[in-house]
């Protein structure tokens, strides 16, 4: 194989160029599938990131009983933190609470009331792993049961909404992705089948002139890989263009990211080789 690697490469390249129409169909099939898949993948990643950002800012607030003396608050914080070492607990004193309230609402309110009715509290950031309705509810229940905590509030509805939205999105993304992949394999497979049929004379001659079955198969696999590379590059350009256009239209300042930008290329190459490999296994008679 090593000795005739040059032959395999040049025949594969020649095969792509010679059967340009079939190559074009295969390239378009892969481009279409990978672009659809890429848009869903990156869409999912970005929506997940956005949801993650919102969830990251989601805090629970545990109000401390007004009858608990201030000196016992540090101990209470330790008790809350001991529930789960992943909890990030920030103490907000009554004074800080009043000051925030005054900043946000009415600075004169406390002058009228002559007293600060606001309790001290803990602002609790839940770790990523607990940012789902069930886990969050469980930990909130635990915090509520700590002696000295009056009430714990958090935006349960938002959490539920984001969580179910994420699940649905992932589900639809996977289904659409799977359909796109199957479609691409089918189209690549068919294009490869036609290609094999169009090159049958060359294949037969190669075989009779002493090309090993492995060499002949390798030529087709490599053609699949080459078609995949071209399809992958076109897909990356398309996805990046779409990302750029969407970014231009977004006014919210959210940055659309395209992590692992080479993934479409890897996917396209694998798809090309896989589609061709199936066709070779089924239709190549050596």
């Amino acid at each position: 194989m090593g000795a005739n690697l040059l032959f395999v490469v040049s025949e594969a390249l020649g095969g792509v160029k010679r059967g340009i129409f079939h190559s074009f169909i295969a390239i378009m099939a892969i481009t279409l599938a990978i672009t659809v898949l890429g848009i869903f993948f990156y869409g999912l990643v970005n929506l997940n990131n956005a949801a993650g950002n919102i969830l990251g800012n989601l805090q629970a607030e545990a109000f401390i009983s007004l009858v608990l003396p201030d000196e016992q608050h540090p101990q209470l914080q330790e008790n809350v933190e001991a529930l789960d070492e992943r909890l990030l607990v920030v103490y907000v004193s009554r004074g800080q609470a009043a000051s925030r309230f005054a900043d946000e609402f009415d600075p004169d309110l406390f002058n009228i009331l002559k007293d600060n009715p606001l309790p001290a509290s803990f602002q609790i950031n839940l770790p990523k792993e607990l940012l789902n309705p069930d886990s969050a509810a469980a930990v909130i229940r635990k915090i509520s049961s700590v002696e000295g905590i009056d009430e714990v509030i958090y935006d349960r509805d938002l959490l539920k909404l984001l969580h179910s939205g994420r699940k649905k999105l992932t589900g639809w993304g996977l289904i659409t992705g799977l359909i796109a992949v199957l479609l691409a394999i089918g189209l690549t497979f068919n294009a490869a089948r036609i290609k094999i049929s169009a090159q049958s004379e060359t294949v037969q001659l190669m075989s009779l002139l002493g090309a090993t079955p492995r060499t002949i198969r390798a030529i087709f696999w490599l053609q699949g890989g080459m078609i995949g590379i071209i399809g992958g590059i076109i897909s990356i350009i398309l996805i990046a263009s779409i990302t750029y256009l969407v970014q231009l239209r977004l006014t919210s300042g959210i940055e659309i990211v395209m992590p692992y930008f080479y993934l479409p290329l890897v996917g396209a190459v694998l798809l090309g080789i896989f589609g061709v490999a199936i066709a070779v296994g089924k239709y190549l008679e050596i």
Partner: peptide, 29 residues
Amino acid sequence: IVFPEPHLLTDRNLFENVAFPLRIEGQPR
């Protein structure tokens, strides 16, 4: 092997057709 029909590959010139078996063997250019 010589076939009843020449079976030269139509998309290659005569040089490339004659060279084909040597290229299959991986002979140096």
